[in-house]
Amino acid sequence: MADTSSSLSLPFIQPSQAQKHVTHNEALRILDVVTQLAVLSDDLAAPPATPTEGDRYIVDDVATGAWATHEGDVALYENGAWQFFTPNAGWRAFVMGREALIVHDGAEWIDLDDAEVQDIEAFGLGMTSLPSTPFAAKLNAALWTGLYLGDGGNGSMITTLNKEATPDDTGFVFQQDFGTRALFGLFGSDDLRLSTSADGVSFNDGFIVDAASGVVDQPNLPRFKGISNFDNYVAADTWTKIAINQTEFNDQSSFDTATNSFIAPVAGTYFFGAALTFKQNTSDQARMGAQLVVNGTDVITGALGEITGAHVSEQTTLNIQGMVLLAAGDTVELQGRLRDFDGYFLADQTSFWGFKVG
């Protein structure tokens, strides 16, 4: 059997050993020194002139005097002499002189606040971290709070996400069962971007804030503007759907030129407007009317207008607009009417437009 323990070199009591209490007391003494280790300082290279019984130090580099050749050792002053203990990797000590916790890495003592100790390659809290995600936590709630003034802070809480260059990414990735459903941050550029995905592969930008100007773009907002590229004939005293057969823009394909109707892709509040320009047929005395109609029957409140005064063909234009709450799949169409006489609504001067506002 070995004479000492492998970790702390505690002396073992040997078979048939005389004065066993001496060996036992020595082991207790070593435990007393290195267990819950606290030292007065770790920056002295020479022993103090008047040490006190039981004082402990960690010897600094280039040791001299009674401490010579014991750099890094724990020095104990006991019974009027210095005794030394060589640390192993993992020993920890509290340095009372500077209120610091240090650890021995097998070669030297290092402050636990040093970057070398904090350079942890991976950390998992409640789960195993992956190489691609060196920090991972599995929990139901997390809180970051500012350090209050009364606790020595300034009351603020700021979290910084940093990337190296403009084409790189920095931001938040929101997932469902580890499948990405949304992104928020600077992805692929310096513009602030909010994007969603149904499958984690194809993404749709909800809004993009330009880094240089701060201008907000909503690239997938349902919106359209359509025109009629031919004169629409309208019989006298008959509400007629205006054929809007061409679009200048049509995001989300929300306007259907086949049915001349806007079709709401999602539920929400929408704003619409239209302009109709009169073109006479046999008379220029017809009176123009226009309305925006939901699902072919319900006129949007405030979106019915008429010009009853005299007008000039190809110069008089009637404008209407209105806001309405729609369900997904609801339709909105533009209707026109000419009272007393028939006529036309002029090509390229008759338009219908709209967009989602909330």
Rank of each mutant, 00 (worst) to 15 (best):
residue 4 T to V: 13
residue 5 S to R: 06
residue 10 L to H: 05
residue 11 P to F: 15
residue 12 F to R: 12
residue 15 P to E: 05
residue 21 H to M: 13
residue 30 I to G: 03
residue 33 V to M: 10
residue 38 A to V: 14
residue 45 A to C: 10
residue 46 A to W: 02
residue 49 A to T: 14
residue 55 D to H: 04
residue 57 Y to D: 02
residue 61 D to R: 14
residue 68 A to M: 07
residue 72 G to Q: 05
residue 74 V to L: 09
residue 82 W to Y: 11
residue 82 W to F: 11
residue 83 Q to I: 04
residue 87 P to Y: 06
residue 87 P to A: 06
residue 88 N to V: 15
residue 93 A to F: 03
residue 93 A to P: 01
residue 98 R to S: 14
residue 105 D to E: 05
residue 105 D to R: 05
residue 108 E to S: 15
residue 109 W to V: 02
residue 115 A to P: 03
residue 125 L to E: 12
residue 127 M to N: 06
residue 130 L to G: 05
residue 137 A to N: 06
residue 138 K to N: 10
residue 142 A to H: 14
residue 143 L to W: 07
residue 144 W to N: 05
residue 148 Y to Q: 10
residue 160 T to P: 01
residue 160 T to Q: 13
residue 162 N to C: 04
residue 167 P to W: 01
residue 170 T to S: 12
residue 172 F to Y: 10
residue 184 F to N: 02
residue 190 D to S: 11
residue 200 G to A: 11
residue 201 V to L: 11
residue 206 G to K: 00
residue 207 F to C: 04
residue 214 G to F: 07
residue 215 V to K: 08
residue 224 F to Q: 03
residue 234 V to T: 07
residue 234 V to W: 00
residue 240 T to N: 03
residue 246 Q to V: 09
residue 248 E to P: 01
residue 250 N to F: 00
residue 259 T to H: 01
residue 268 G to L: 04
residue 277 T to G: 01
residue 281 N to C: 05
residue 281 N to F: 11
residue 284 D to W: 03
residue 290 A to N: 03
residue 295 N to Q: 06
residue 302 G to N: 07
residue 311 H to K: 15
residue 312 V to A: 13
residue 315 Q to R: 09
residue 326 L to S: 02
residue 331 T to V: 03
residue 342 D to N: 14
residue 343 G to T: 04
residue 346 L to S: 05
residue 348 D to R: 14
residue 352 F to Y: 09
residue 353 W to K: 05
residue 358 G to Y: 03
